[in-house]
Design a protein around this nucleic acid. Structure first.
Length: 269
DNA sequence: GAAGACCTGCTA
DNA sequence: TAGCAGGTCTTC
């Protein structure tokens, strides 16, 4: 589900809600695999009593700084999300983990599909520069020596971290590049267009507090249960068969690296 | 690369 | 009932 803009929205809301600085009084793990490879008991032992420091983000990972040497790293995968409650703890039906914090605040991790993961580690590795803050220079460096299908490259978190299926399609449309093109074939002008497009769509996503498709359970909502406002701004994702906003031709749907991809055959070259 | 695994819930 | 989903990992 969530890509960088959705994760960033959640991060900002957790900060605004005053989660930082509280201590973790009690840990509830409802779905043990959430904290693999640790057992719930081992996880609880390490985290209970710690103080939550700054909340950061890299790509799609949320980073909760703890006062110990390890950090709590959270990946929401397809359907993970947080919400807060106050006072006596009442667990929701899809809660996979809950932290009871000082001051009576409960941080619930809701994840219907159970793919989300909580890890304890000092740092993240294998990730490229964050898509929200990557510089032009870094982006060009990351492209050096690469010759991958553009769609696959954008989804590769070791290239640039944070782009997922929605924003990859949107960025390629914005750059007017065919998702099937190989990155090695890009001219400098096209590389620059791709860089600008990626940062533009990611920033727009953050500004609009993320994208949600449909409105049932399992779709992205922020801390307050609101769907993101980016949904109306999406130009290609989920719009196959509908007219291209530029040329009016129907948008084409295909599979690239097992991922649904929508693009305009006429505008994207 | 491609295919399967991990999972549940919504839509057609 | 079948098919599909915002993600990633493992195994041919």
């Amino acid at each position: 589900m969530p890509e960088l803009p959705e994760v960033e929205t959640i991060r900002r809301q957790l900060c605004a809600a005053g989660v930082e600085g509280r201590s973790i009084e009690k840990v509830h793990i409802e779905w043990p695999r959430t904290v693999e490879p640790l057992t719930p008991a081992a996880f609880r032992k390490q985290v209970q009593g710690c103080r939550l420091g700054k909340i950061d983000r890299h790509g799609k990972w949320l980073i909760f700084r703890l006062d110990g040497k390890e950090n709590l790293l959270v990946h929401l995968r397809m359907t993970g999300g947080f919400y807060l409650t106050k006072g006596a703890l009442k667990k929701g039906p899809h809660d996979r983990a809950v932290l009871q914090l000082s001051g009576g605040l409960n941080l619930h991790f809701r994840d219907p599909r159970k793919f989300g993961r909580w890890r304890l580690a000092a740092s993240l590795d294998g990730l490229g520069p964050d898509a929200l803050t990557v510089t032009r220079k870094q982006f060009f460096q990351c492209l050096e020596g690469q010759n991958k299908v553009l769609k696959a490259l954008l989804l590769d978190q070791s290239f640039v971290a944070g782009v997922g299926n929605i924003y990859a399609d949107e960025a390629l449309f914005e750059a007017r590049l065919d998702p099937r093109r190989k990155s090695g074939s890009l001219s400098d002008t096209e590389k620059l267009a791709l860089y600008k497009a990626v940062t533009k769509v990611i920033k727009a996503g953050v500004r609009n507090k993320g994208t949600s498709l449909g409105d049932g359970q399992g779709n992205y909502t922020d801390l307050n249960g609101d769907a993101g406002g980016h949904r109306e701004k999406v130009k290609v994702y989920g719009r196959s068969g509908q007219p291209c906003t530029v040329c009016g031709q129907p948008l084409h749907k295909t599979q690239i690296t097992q991922r649904t991809t929508v693009f305009c055959v006429h505008c994207q070259n």
